[in-house]
Simulated assay, not measured.
Amino acid sequence: MPRELLRLRRLLLALTLVPLAAVLAGLLGWLVVPVLALLGLLPLLALAWCWRLLERNWRSWRYAERADDLLISRGVLWRELTVVPYGRMQLVEVTSGPLERHFGLATVQLRTAAAASDARIPGLEPKEAARLRDRLTELGEARSAGL
């Protein structure tokens, strides 16, 4: 997985928690007691803790194309392994929002007939995402022809 996905998630984390810390410290210091402004450090402590967790989560994402199915693995504390048979794929799409495009990333979304079996692979380079989409579509059509 490209490291840009980690950079994007860390940026979003910082853009959320740093202003929250500033507002919390300002309001508590101004409205209540200046000493309570130190509670504004709590979001910054959460930022430091989550900074490392984001890297562990980023490292946990894996996918593998096998002969008959696609494996997607992720998770640190709760590991999740998703196996999607090529013949069950109904739709393979590549999406990329404004922030993802800025960081040169795309997400491959897989849809099957079962609502709970949808899977996604985030943080791919656009060329790899397009290659994977084309390959999965080709394999899906070949495997579903016999159904």
Rank of each mutant, 00 (worst) to 15 (best):
N57L: 15
D118P: 03
A114S: 13
P122C: 07
M89G: 00
L124S: 04
R135S: 15
P126Y: 07
P98I: 11
D134Q: 13
A67D: 13
L54S: 06
A64W: 07
V76P: 14
A119F: 02
R135H: 15
R101P: 01
R131W: 11
R66T: 09
G97K: 07
T82M: 15
D134F: 04
A115K: 09
L124R: 05
E55Y: 08
R62Y: 01
E100T: 05
R56I: 05
P85M: 04
V108F: 01
L132I: 09
T112F: 02
L77M: 14
I72H: 11
V76C: 09
L105G: 03
L132R: 06
T137E: 13
R133M: 09
R62G: 04
P98Q: 10
M89D: 02
D134G: 09
R135N: 12
V84C: 07
R133A: 08
R56P: 01
I72T: 14
L132P: 00
R131H: 08
R135C: 09
L70M: 09
R52Q: 14
V84I: 15
E128K: 10
E128T: 10
A67V: 12
R79C: 06
E93N: 10
T95K: 09
L132C: 03
E65I: 08
A119K: 02
A114F: 05
S96V: 06
S117G: 09
D118R: 14
R88V: 07
N57V: 15
Y86H: 06
G87N: 06
A130S: 11
D118E: 14
A113W: 02
L70R: 05
Y86R: 04
A115T: 14
V94G: 02
R135G: 08
D68C: 03
M89T: 04
R111Y: 13
Q109G: 02
V108C: 01
F103M: 06
L77N: 11
E125A: 14
E65V: 13
A114G: 14
L105S: 02
I121D: 02
A67Y: 08
A106L: 03
I72Q: 04
A113E: 09
E80N: 12
T95E: 12
R111C: 08
A130C: 03
G97R: 07
P98Y: 03
D134Y: 03
D134V: 02
A119V: 06
T95C: 02
E55Q: 13
L99F: 08
D134N: 12
G123C: 04
E128M: 08
Q90K: 11
S96T: 07
L91Q: 14
